[in-house]
Every structure is written in C-alpha cells, then in structure tokens.
Simulated scan of single mutants.
Amino acid sequence: MEVTVNARQSPADTEVCDVREALDLVADKWSLYVVSNLNDGPRRFNELKRAVQGVSQRMLTVTLRRLERDGILTRTVHEVMPPHVTYRLTPLGTSLLHAAAPLIAWSSDHLAEIASARAEHDRSQGLESPTVGARS
C-alpha cells in the first residue's frame, strides 16, 4: 500500500495518525459495549438494544454500521418470514474483545472507587454528583 505523506508530515506522524484512528474505533461510548455483548454469539438488533442500556436506536445503528465497515462485525440478513438481521463478531472483532477484556474487567472492578472519587471531587467543588453510569 502506498501512502502519500504531506511534506510537513513525517512517516512517523502518519503512523501516529493511523494508530489514533484505530483507537478512535474503540474509544467511543458504545463500541466496546456492543462488541462485548456479541461475545456469546450472534444477536439481533433489538437484543443488542436491550443489552446495551442507554443507547438510542439511532446511535446503535451508527455504531453497528461503523463496526461493520471496520471489519469488527458482520451483518447477516436472514431471508425468513419475517426477515431479520443478526450481527456477529468477525475474527478481528474477537481479537479486539480479547484485547479489551482486561479494560472491561478493570472498569467493572473499580466502579465503586470511581463513584467515590467523583462524589468527593464534586463535593469539594460544591457540585452535586450523579452516580457512575448515570446518563447526562
């Protein structure tokens, strides 16, 4: 693959931009949540919608399309009556889930500490503190 490099941009800068773009794939609010919910096999849209609490229908659609475009999951249309669609992790998606599993576990293990730190910080600032996981 040939890469055109801006005269002001070194190949290392280009690589950093590429890495940042790859990290953006998982750094958004919903991608890892969706990927982790596909761990046990294919799911239909409404199953994902119920499992990924707080996501809007539009945001789930955008997230699924982006993950499909990036090769993380596949979308399969089943020609049955009534027709339905399922989403499944690709091998690339499965490797992403394995890489992200420690981060997901860390998040789960430290929810109480994060909530406590937020509450203390907000108290010190004279603010009301919503709970961890509360939607803003």
Score class of each variant (00 low, 15 high):
residue 123 R to F: 06
residue 58 R to P: 04
residue 54 G to K: 10
residue 83 P to C: 01
residue 64 L to P: 07
residue 125 Q to C: 07
residue 57 Q to I: 09
residue 72 I to V: 14
residue 117 A to H: 08
residue 73 L to F: 00
residue 127 L to C: 04
residue 102 P to T: 03
residue 119 A to F: 01
residue 87 Y to K: 05
residue 62 V to Y: 14
residue 106 W to T: 10
residue 84 H to A: 04
residue 102 P to M: 04
residue 118 R to T: 02
residue 115 A to L: 02
residue 68 E to W: 07
residue 119 A to M: 03
residue 59 M to D: 15
residue 64 L to S: 01
residue 74 T to C: 12
residue 85 V to E: 13
residue 110 H to T: 07
residue 74 T to L: 13
residue 111 L to C: 13
residue 95 S to V: 06
residue 101 A to K: 11
residue 90 T to M: 04
residue 53 Q to N: 12
residue 98 H to P: 00
residue 91 P to H: 01
residue 79 E to M: 04
residue 75 R to E: 14
residue 99 A to Y: 03
residue 76 T to E: 10
residue 98 H to D: 12
residue 127 L to G: 02
residue 79 E to N: 12
residue 48 L to V: 01
residue 103 L to D: 08
residue 119 A to G: 08
residue 124 S to F: 07
residue 50 R to H: 10
residue 101 A to N: 06
residue 55 V to W: 05
residue 71 G to F: 11
residue 108 S to P: 00
residue 70 D to C: 09
residue 72 I to R: 07
residue 118 R to Y: 05
residue 91 P to S: 05
residue 90 T to V: 02
residue 69 R to K: 13
residue 111 L to N: 09
residue 82 P to A: 07
residue 75 R to W: 03
residue 69 R to V: 08
residue 121 H to F: 14
residue 99 A to K: 04
residue 106 W to Y: 13
residue 94 T to R: 10
residue 87 Y to D: 03
residue 83 P to K: 10
residue 117 A to T: 10
residue 92 L to G: 07
residue 69 R to T: 10
residue 67 L to K: 03
residue 123 R to T: 03
residue 99 A to L: 14
residue 49 K to P: 07
residue 62 V to L: 13
residue 103 L to W: 10
residue 76 T to K: 08
residue 127 L to R: 12
residue 83 P to R: 12
residue 70 D to G: 06
residue 116 S to Y: 04
residue 56 S to Q: 03
residue 55 V to C: 12
residue 94 T to I: 10
residue 99 A to V: 05
residue 77 V to G: 04
residue 77 V to K: 15
residue 50 R to Q: 15
residue 128 E to Q: 10
residue 94 T to L: 09
residue 74 T to H: 12
residue 63 T to N: 04
residue 62 V to W: 07
residue 80 V to Q: 14
residue 78 H to F: 05
residue 51 A to Y: 00
residue 106 W to E: 10
residue 49 K to W: 08
residue 93 G to Y: 00
residue 86 T to M: 09
